[in-house]
Amino acid sequence: MDGSIGILSQVAFWGLYSGCIYILLATGLNLIFGVMKIVNFAHGEFLMLGTYVTFFLFVISGFNPYVLLICSIPVLIVVGIIVERLCFRPILGTGKLNEIFISLGLIYIFQNMVAMIWTDEWRSIKSPFSDITISLGPLQLPLDYLIIITVTILILVAFYLFLQKTALGRAIRAASQNRKGAMLMGINVEKMDMLTFGIGAGLAGAAGTLWAVSGQVFNPYMGSIPAIKGFAIIILGGLGSIPGAIVGGLAIGMVENFTAYTLGGSWKDAVSFILLIVVLVIRPTGLFGEAEE
């Protein structure tokens, strides 16, 4: 009995860890959706780029991979800004699903550019702490996972403070609440679009670094599924709600790991979509979503 509780809490801990990656993705997607009202299906490619930036810098410099967060976040912010300027700005306000279609193009571009540079082999890096585990009663906690959870919390707190306390954060929130109103108040909404897209991409980049240091394997095509799950999370949590993204991310992380434990690994991806479909059948606007505009 004791052993099974041990295993269950172990699974819960993995869920917490994979939830962290999803939370970072979903928060970024949510921020972008809040301000621009678009859905970026290519968001997972930022995650993938984040893992490769980390991988590349780790191989050439040998730094502690956690330090590389300082590089992967800014690099992805710049990538995000470029993508927003070149691809999403021109189609803002045009056809209904254009942003999804343009994301498809971006997915092909990013995946195969990375595949051209680093080939499409599965890669992984080894964190310097990968051998250390901390025993807590029956639990075996890898130190890396603890650091990842802490880093995620730190990033989220920093992000929250940025949104709440700084003038820029206020402007972003204003643009997200009422685009026209913000414009009338003299906020440069287009600059906010650029900024939020950059920040969203930066958060995905951070998730990429954390993905790589956790010892998980990655290849150029690994991004699409996590990003679409990130999107499932923000539907569950309600479009535009950041607390919803955090709760939804943890929920999906947990459900996935418990399903993999009970039904077998092949159900890991499918279960989040089953959850999403069940929720949408009951509430077509998502768990905490507002009614139609």
């Binding site: 859905v39 209904k96 699903l97 539907i235 159900w267 499918a270 989040s272």
Partner: peptide, 22 residues
Amino acid sequence: REWFLAMVTFGFAVIIQTLVVS
């Protein structure tokens, strides 16, 4: 709505593939 529809249809493809292989 459009985005949700896109997600659900995508999800169904993943679910059906999972069923077929497991």
